[in-house]
Each structure stands twice: as structure tokens, then as C-alpha cells.
Amino acid sequence: MSIQSNVEVHTEWGIVSARQAGRNLAKDAGFGNVDQARIATAISELARNIYLYAEKGEIVIQYVEDTESPVSKRGIKIIAKDKGPGISNIRDVMEDGFTTSGGLGAGLPGVKRLMDEFDIHSTAGEGTEITAIKWLR
């Protein structure tokens, strides 16, 4: 199965569209309402980061399957990428309590905890790519 949604984020509408796309895919994949809300929230936070710091970027939401592990797993993968200023101190932004905008957002550590897998790659001046996966239980 290869269902995928690509959403451009450069306005708050983009954030809403990304949430919607993620929620739909999560629902189809069989996630319960709590996990749907978690996935939507994770997308929301990632999309807001793009909107606030990179001005524009893209959220890709995919249906994924892991056939290599002993028990095959299915889930939803979120990829958030932008060509913004990048993050020079990833260790700091992954630390609880670190906020750059003074906003109340739970930030990246919050997103990491909402999801099952989380990976971040960023180069200062080039951009950021964050991948997060939620597996169906």
C-alpha cells in the first residue's frame, strides 16, 4: 500500500490541511481517536515550526509497514522538511524547557513523546528534516 499526502506549509491554512490529511490517514489506518489526536497534534507542532521559523516547507504523511521486524507493524510516518535556517544546536532544542520563541508549545521533545519513533536531521543554513512514526498497537 502506498498512500501518501504532501502538504505545503506556508500559511496557518497549511497547518490545518496537514492536520486534516494526517488525521484522515490515521483514521484509515485504524488508529483510535486518542492516537488520531496525537498524530494530528504532532503534525500541528511540526507544521507550526516550519511556519514560524522556516516560513515555508512541506509535510509528507505516509502509510508505512515494517515487514522486517518479527511481528510486522503498520503505522503512520510524518516527514517535515524545510529549507529554513536550520537548527545549530539540536541537543538544546531536544531538551525540555528550551523555547526559542517564548511560545507555550511543547516543542520537539513533546512531539517525540507523542510518537513512537523520531529522527531529526538539520544543517545550519540549509534546513531541517524531521521524521516521526507512530505504530499501530
Binding site: 489526536a37 525540555d96 511543547a106 521533545p109 513533546g110 513523546r113
Partner: peptide, 24 residues
């Protein structure tokens, strides 16, 4: 309830942040 669930997400994230800070 879905609406309320979405509102509660913030508390959920704060709760988990609190747990991780407590461990730290």
C-alpha cells in the same frame, strides 16, 4: 468529545514533559 480531546492534548503533552523532567 473529539473537540475536548483536542483541548486535552496540551495537558497530555505537559504531563509527559513533567514525567520526563521528573526522571531527569
Amino acid at each position: 468529545f473529539d473537540f475536548l480531546l483536542e483541548v486535552m492534548m496540551g495537558y497530555g503533552m505537559a504531563y509527559r514533559a513533567h514525567q520526563s523532567l521528573r526522571d531527569k
